[in-house]
Protein backbone atom coordinates (compact mmCIF):
# COMPACT_ATOMS: atom_id res chain seq x y z
CA UNK A 1 0.00 0.00 0.00
CA UNK A 2 1.32 3.40 -0.88
CA UNK A 3 0.90 6.23 1.54
CA UNK A 4 -1.95 8.57 0.90
CA UNK A 5 -1.30 10.86 3.81
CA UNK A 6 2.02 11.54 5.51
CA UNK A 7 2.47 13.54 8.67
CA UNK A 8 6.16 14.08 9.38
CA UNK A 9 7.44 15.43 12.71
CA UNK A 10 4.49 17.82 12.97
CA UNK A 11 4.82 20.49 15.66
CA UNK A 12 2.12 23.03 16.41
CA UNK A 13 2.83 25.85 18.83
CA UNK A 14 0.33 28.52 19.83
CA UNK A 15 1.51 31.92 20.95
CA UNK A 16 -0.33 32.57 24.23
CA UNK A 17 -0.10 35.11 27.05
CA UNK A 18 1.52 32.49 29.25
CA UNK A 19 4.14 31.71 26.60
CA UNK A 20 4.41 29.22 23.73
CA UNK A 21 1.82 26.44 24.08
CA UNK A 22 3.19 23.30 22.47
CA UNK A 23 0.02 21.45 21.56
CA UNK A 24 1.62 18.97 19.17
CA UNK A 25 5.23 18.02 19.84
CA UNK A 26 6.54 16.04 16.91
CA UNK A 27 3.99 13.59 15.52
CA UNK A 28 4.81 11.28 12.65
CA UNK A 29 2.01 9.23 11.15
CA UNK A 30 1.30 7.75 7.76
CA UNK A 31 -2.05 6.67 6.42
CA UNK A 32 -2.40 4.35 3.43
CA UNK A 33 -5.12 4.57 0.83
CA UNK A 34 -8.35 3.20 2.27
CA UNK A 35 -6.84 2.69 5.70
CA UNK A 36 -8.75 3.43 8.90
CA UNK A 37 -6.77 4.92 11.76
CA UNK A 38 -7.90 5.64 15.33
CA UNK A 39 -6.34 8.47 17.29
CA UNK A 40 -6.99 8.09 20.99
CA UNK A 41 -6.20 10.38 23.90
CA UNK A 42 -7.64 12.52 26.68
CA UNK A 43 -8.73 16.14 26.34
CA UNK A 44 -5.61 18.21 25.84
CA UNK A 45 -3.55 15.38 24.36
CA UNK A 46 -3.25 17.29 21.09
CA UNK A 47 -5.36 14.90 19.00
CA UNK A 48 -7.80 17.53 17.77
CA UNK A 49 -5.11 20.15 17.10
CA UNK A 50 -3.16 17.56 15.14
CA UNK A 51 -6.12 16.64 12.98
CA UNK A 52 -7.14 20.25 12.36
CA UNK A 53 -3.60 21.18 11.43
CA UNK A 54 -3.56 18.22 9.03
CA UNK A 55 -6.68 19.63 7.41
CA UNK A 56 -4.92 22.97 7.03
CA UNK A 57 -7.49 24.57 9.33
CA UNK A 58 -5.04 26.16 11.75
CA UNK A 59 -3.25 29.16 10.38
CA UNK A 60 -2.50 32.73 11.36
CA UNK A 61 0.10 34.73 13.16
CA UNK A 62 -0.31 33.05 16.49
CA UNK A 63 0.12 29.52 15.19
CA UNK A 64 3.59 28.18 14.48
CA UNK A 65 3.55 25.11 12.27
CA UNK A 66 6.64 22.97 11.73
CA UNK A 67 7.21 19.64 10.03
CA UNK A 68 5.20 18.44 7.09
CA UNK A 69 1.76 17.18 6.11
CA UNK A 70 1.61 15.60 2.68
CA UNK A 71 -1.42 14.39 0.77
CA UNK A 72 -0.40 12.26 -2.24
CA UNK A 73 3.09 13.72 -1.90
CA UNK A 74 1.89 17.34 -2.00
CA UNK A 75 2.79 19.51 0.97
CA UNK A 76 -0.26 21.07 2.64
CA UNK A 77 1.38 23.24 5.29
CA UNK A 78 2.87 25.70 2.80
CA UNK A 79 -0.31 26.09 0.77
CA UNK A 80 -2.23 29.32 0.81
CA UNK A 81 -5.75 29.37 2.25
CA UNK A 82 -7.12 29.52 -1.28
CA UNK A 83 -5.12 26.54 -2.50
CA UNK A 84 -6.11 24.35 0.41
CA UNK A 85 -9.79 25.26 0.05
CA UNK A 86 -9.65 23.57 -3.35
CA UNK A 87 -8.80 20.29 -1.60
CA UNK A 88 -11.50 20.44 1.06
CA UNK A 89 -14.41 18.23 0.27
CA UNK A 90 -12.85 16.72 -2.83
CA UNK A 91 -9.77 15.15 -1.30
CA UNK A 92 -9.98 15.76 2.40
CA UNK A 93 -13.05 16.26 4.58
CA UNK A 94 -14.00 16.40 8.21
CA UNK A 95 -16.90 15.47 10.51
CA UNK A 96 -17.07 17.36 13.79
CA UNK A 97 -18.24 16.30 17.22
CA UNK A 98 -21.08 18.77 17.51
CA UNK A 99 -23.28 18.69 14.40
CA UNK A 100 -25.55 21.38 15.81
CA UNK A 101 -22.87 24.05 15.69
CA UNK A 102 -21.32 22.75 12.48
CA UNK A 103 -24.54 23.13 10.51
CA UNK A 104 -26.03 26.49 9.60
CA UNK A 105 -29.04 26.82 11.95
CA UNK A 106 -31.03 29.20 9.72
CA UNK A 107 -30.87 27.20 6.50
CA UNK A 108 -32.86 24.13 5.63
CA UNK A 109 -30.84 20.93 5.41
CA UNK A 110 -31.37 20.31 1.69
CA UNK A 111 -30.34 23.70 0.28
CA UNK A 112 -27.44 23.80 2.72
CA UNK A 113 -26.10 20.56 1.30
CA UNK A 114 -26.89 21.41 -2.31
CA UNK A 115 -24.99 24.68 -2.11
CA UNK A 116 -21.75 22.81 -1.45
CA UNK A 117 -22.35 20.56 -4.45
CA UNK A 118 -23.05 23.48 -6.75
CA UNK A 119 -19.96 25.35 -5.62
CA UNK A 120 -17.54 22.45 -5.30
CA UNK A 121 -18.65 20.09 -8.06
CA UNK A 122 -20.09 22.62 -10.48
CA UNK A 123 -23.43 20.79 -10.53
CA UNK A 124 -26.63 22.41 -11.66
CA UNK A 125 -29.12 23.16 -8.91
CA UNK A 126 -31.43 20.35 -10.05
CA UNK A 127 -28.63 17.78 -10.19
CA UNK A 128 -27.44 18.89 -6.77
CA UNK A 129 -30.93 18.50 -5.26
CA UNK A 130 -31.16 14.97 -6.64
CA UNK A 131 -27.69 14.13 -5.38
CA UNK A 132 -28.62 15.39 -1.88
CA UNK A 133 -31.45 12.86 -1.71
CA UNK A 134 -29.06 10.13 -2.89
CA UNK A 135 -26.51 11.06 -0.25
CA UNK A 136 -29.07 11.16 2.55
CA UNK A 137 -30.27 7.71 1.50
CA UNK A 138 -26.66 6.54 1.51
CA UNK A 139 -26.27 7.57 5.15
CA UNK A 140 -29.59 5.82 5.86
CA UNK A 141 -31.52 8.86 6.94
CA UNK A 142 -35.17 7.78 6.98
CA UNK A 143 -37.42 9.51 4.43
CA UNK A 144 -34.82 11.87 2.91
CA UNK A 145 -37.44 13.83 0.95
CA UNK A 146 -39.12 14.84 4.21
CA UNK A 147 -35.87 15.74 5.96
CA UNK A 148 -34.41 18.13 3.36
CA UNK A 149 -37.00 20.79 4.10
CA UNK A 150 -36.27 20.73 7.83
CA UNK A 151 -33.96 22.98 9.78
CA UNK A 152 -31.10 21.38 11.73
CA UNK A 153 -32.82 21.91 15.11
CA UNK A 154 -35.76 19.84 13.94
CA UNK A 155 -33.55 16.77 13.56
CA UNK A 156 -32.29 14.55 16.39
CA UNK A 157 -28.58 14.43 17.26
CA UNK A 158 -28.10 11.15 15.42
CA UNK A 159 -29.86 12.46 12.30
CA UNK A 160 -27.79 15.63 12.32
CA UNK A 161 -24.62 13.58 12.52
CA UNK A 162 -25.82 11.57 9.51
CA UNK A 163 -26.37 14.83 7.62
CA UNK A 164 -22.83 15.92 8.54
CA UNK A 165 -21.43 12.64 7.28
CA UNK A 166 -23.44 12.95 4.06
CA UNK A 167 -22.01 16.43 3.52
CA UNK A 168 -18.48 15.26 4.23
CA UNK A 169 -18.65 12.42 1.72
CA UNK A 170 -20.59 14.44 -0.88
CA UNK A 171 -17.54 15.03 -3.07
CA UNK A 172 -16.04 11.59 -2.37
CA UNK A 173 -12.92 12.63 -0.48
CA UNK A 174 -9.89 10.36 -0.31
CA UNK A 175 -9.55 10.87 3.42
CA UNK A 176 -12.15 11.67 6.07
CA UNK A 177 -11.29 13.02 9.50
CA UNK A 178 -13.93 12.39 12.16
CA UNK A 179 -13.34 14.27 15.40
CA UNK A 180 -15.25 12.57 18.23
CA UNK A 181 -18.08 11.77 15.80
CA UNK A 182 -20.11 9.80 18.34
CA UNK A 183 -19.28 11.39 21.68
CA UNK A 184 -22.40 13.55 21.81
CA UNK A 185 -24.68 10.64 20.86
CA UNK A 186 -26.54 7.95 22.79
CA UNK A 187 -24.87 4.53 22.83
CA UNK A 188 -27.50 3.05 20.54
CA UNK A 189 -27.09 5.83 17.98
CA UNK A 190 -23.32 5.72 18.46
CA UNK A 191 -23.37 2.08 17.38
CA UNK A 192 -25.45 2.99 14.31
CA UNK A 193 -23.13 5.83 13.28
CA UNK A 194 -19.97 3.73 13.70
CA UNK A 195 -21.49 0.92 11.64
CA UNK A 196 -22.42 3.45 8.97
CA UNK A 197 -18.97 5.01 8.83
CA UNK A 198 -17.28 1.62 8.55
CA UNK A 199 -19.68 0.66 5.79
CA UNK A 200 -19.18 3.90 3.83
CA UNK A 201 -15.41 3.60 4.08
CA UNK A 202 -15.50 0.21 2.41
CA UNK A 203 -18.00 1.26 -0.18
CA UNK A 204 -16.20 4.46 -1.17
CA UNK A 205 -12.67 3.16 -0.57
CA UNK A 206 -11.69 6.23 1.42
CA UNK A 207 -9.20 6.46 4.25
CA UNK A 208 -10.60 7.44 7.62
CA UNK A 209 -9.20 8.93 10.81
CA UNK A 210 -11.39 8.56 13.92
CA UNK A 211 -10.40 10.78 16.81
CA UNK A 212 -11.78 9.76 20.20
CA UNK A 213 -11.10 9.53 23.93
CA UNK A 214 -12.65 6.08 24.11
CA UNK A 215 -10.58 3.04 23.11
CA UNK A 216 -13.81 1.05 22.94
CA UNK A 217 -15.02 3.12 20.00
CA UNK A 218 -12.01 2.35 17.81
CA UNK A 219 -11.59 -1.34 18.75
CA UNK A 220 -13.66 -2.19 15.70
CA UNK A 221 -13.65 -0.29 12.40
CA UNK A 222 -9.94 0.65 12.53
CA UNK A 223 -6.78 -0.92 11.10
CA UNK A 224 -4.35 0.82 13.41
CA UNK A 225 -4.43 3.02 16.47
CA UNK A 226 -2.18 5.83 17.65
CA UNK A 227 -2.40 6.74 21.34
CA UNK A 228 -1.55 10.37 22.04
CA UNK A 229 -0.50 11.96 25.31
CA UNK A 230 0.84 15.44 25.95
CA UNK A 231 1.15 16.25 22.24
CA UNK A 232 3.07 13.11 21.34
CA UNK A 233 2.26 9.66 20.02
CA UNK A 234 3.12 7.39 22.95
CA UNK A 235 2.11 4.14 21.30
CA UNK A 236 1.11 3.09 17.82
CA UNK A 237 0.19 -0.36 16.56
CA UNK A 238 -2.18 -2.31 14.36
CA UNK A 239 -5.51 -2.48 16.23
CA UNK A 240 -5.44 -6.19 17.08
CA UNK A 241 -1.79 -6.05 18.09
CA UNK A 242 -2.42 -3.05 20.35
CA UNK A 243 -5.25 -4.69 22.26
CA UNK A 244 -3.39 -7.99 22.53
CA UNK A 245 -0.05 -6.54 23.54
CA UNK A 246 -0.20 -3.12 25.18
CA UNK A 247 3.26 -1.81 25.95
CA UNK A 248 2.76 1.74 27.19
CA UNK A 249 1.44 2.21 30.76
CA UNK A 250 -0.80 5.06 29.57
CA UNK A 251 -2.53 2.84 27.00
CA UNK A 252 -3.11 0.28 29.70
CA UNK A 253 -4.51 2.89 32.09
CA UNK A 254 -6.87 4.20 29.39
CA UNK A 255 -8.03 0.68 28.70
CA UNK A 256 -8.68 -0.05 32.35
CA UNK A 257 -10.71 3.10 32.88
CA UNK A 258 -13.35 2.07 30.33
CA UNK A 259 -16.54 1.04 32.10
CA UNK A 260 -17.34 -2.50 31.04
CA UNK A 261 -20.31 -4.78 31.25
CA UNK A 262 -18.17 -7.71 32.38
CA UNK A 263 -16.88 -5.96 35.47
CA UNK A 264 -18.42 -6.77 38.87
CA UNK A 265 -21.04 -4.18 39.84
CA UNK A 266 -19.96 -1.69 42.45
CA UNK A 267 -16.30 -2.54 41.91
CA UNK A 268 -14.07 0.52 42.19
CA UNK A 269 -13.14 1.97 38.82
CA UNK A 270 -9.42 2.13 38.10
CA UNK A 271 -9.15 5.85 37.37
CA UNK A 272 -5.98 7.57 36.14
CA UNK A 273 -4.95 9.83 39.02
CA UNK A 274 -3.72 13.36 38.39
CA UNK A 275 -4.19 15.56 35.35
CA UNK A 276 -2.58 15.79 31.89
CA UNK A 277 0.64 17.81 31.65
CA UNK A 278 0.64 21.58 31.21
CA UNK A 279 1.19 22.21 27.48
CA UNK A 280 3.01 25.48 28.18
CA UNK A 281 5.52 24.14 30.68
CA UNK A 282 8.92 22.91 29.52
CA UNK A 283 9.22 19.19 29.73
CA UNK A 284 12.25 17.14 30.60
CA UNK A 285 11.31 13.53 31.21
CA UNK A 286 8.47 11.36 29.98
CA UNK A 287 5.19 13.29 29.71
CA UNK A 288 3.28 10.55 31.53
CA UNK A 289 5.83 10.02 34.33
CA UNK A 290 4.00 12.11 36.99
CA UNK A 291 0.89 9.90 36.64
CA UNK A 292 2.63 6.63 35.85
CA UNK A 293 2.56 3.81 38.39
CA UNK A 294 5.86 2.43 37.11
CA UNK A 295 7.88 5.65 36.76
CA UNK A 296 11.48 5.73 38.01
CA UNK A 297 14.08 8.51 38.32
CA UNK A 298 15.08 7.98 34.71
CA UNK A 299 11.52 8.65 33.53
CA UNK A 300 11.49 12.04 35.25
CA UNK A 301 14.90 13.06 33.86
CA UNK A 302 15.10 11.68 30.33
CA UNK A 303 12.69 11.87 27.44
CA UNK A 304 11.93 8.46 25.91
CA UNK A 305 12.13 8.14 22.13
CA UNK A 306 9.71 6.07 20.06
CA UNK A 307 11.02 2.49 20.13
CA UNK A 308 10.16 0.24 17.21
CA UNK A 309 9.10 -3.22 18.35
CA UNK A 310 8.47 -4.59 14.86
CA UNK A 311 5.15 -5.44 13.18
CA UNK A 312 4.28 -1.78 13.00
CA UNK A 313 4.22 -1.53 16.79
CA UNK A 314 6.15 1.32 18.42
CA UNK A 315 6.03 2.82 21.92
CA UNK A 316 7.60 5.68 23.83
CA UNK A 317 8.60 4.16 27.17
CA UNK A 318 11.79 3.11 28.98
CA UNK A 319 10.05 0.32 30.85
CA UNK A 320 7.40 -1.08 28.52
CA UNK A 321 4.83 -3.50 29.87
CA UNK A 322 4.68 -7.15 28.91
CA UNK A 323 7.24 -8.00 26.30
CA UNK A 324 7.67 -11.41 24.85
Amino acid sequence: MSNLFDIGDLRITFDTKRGPLKAVRGVTLSIAKGESVGIVGESGSGKTVMSRASMGLLRGRRVKREGSVKLNGVELLTMTAKEIRELWGKQIAMVFQDPMTALNPVRRVGPQMAEALVKRMGMTKEAADARVLELLALVRLPEPDKQVVKYPHQLSGGMRQRVMIAMAIACEPEILFADEPTTALDVTVQAQVLELMGDLRQRLGMAMVIITHDLGVVATHTDKIAVMYGGEVVEIAPTKELFANMRHPYTEALMKSIPRLDRAPGERMPAIAGTPPDPVADRVGCAFAPRCAYATDKCHKEHPELTDAGNGHAYRCFFPLGGK
Binding site: P142, S156, G158, M159, V187, T188, V189, Q190, A191, Q192, L194, E195, D214, L215, G216, V217, A219, T220, T239, K240, F243, A244, M255, I258, R260, L261
Partner: peptide
Protein backbone atom coordinates in the same frame (compact mmCIF):
# COMPACT_ATOMS: atom_id res chain seq x y z
CA UNK B 1 -30.87 -6.34 24.90
CA UNK B 2 -30.29 -3.76 22.18
CA UNK B 3 -28.91 -1.31 24.75
CA UNK B 4 -26.53 -3.95 26.11
CA UNK B 5 -25.23 -4.89 22.70
CA UNK B 6 -24.72 -1.25 21.72
CA UNK B 7 -21.98 -0.86 24.34
CA UNK B 8 -18.67 -0.85 22.45
CA UNK B 9 -16.41 -3.67 23.56
CA UNK B 10 -12.75 -2.66 23.78
CA UNK B 11 -11.57 -5.89 22.21
CA UNK B 12 -11.18 -6.23 18.44
CA UNK B 13 -11.14 -10.04 18.59
CA UNK B 14 -14.64 -10.18 20.03
CA UNK B 15 -17.02 -10.13 17.13
CA UNK B 16 -19.96 -8.99 19.13
CA UNK B 17 -23.36 -10.43 18.28
CA UNK B 18 -24.59 -6.89 18.01
CA UNK B 19 -28.25 -6.20 17.75
CA UNK B 20 -27.94 -2.70 16.38
CA UNK B 21 -31.23 -0.97 16.97
CA UNK B 22 -32.51 0.60 13.77
CA UNK B 23 -34.10 3.99 13.68
CA UNK B 24 -34.99 6.23 16.56
Amino acid sequence: HALVSAVPIPDPTKVSGRAVLEGE
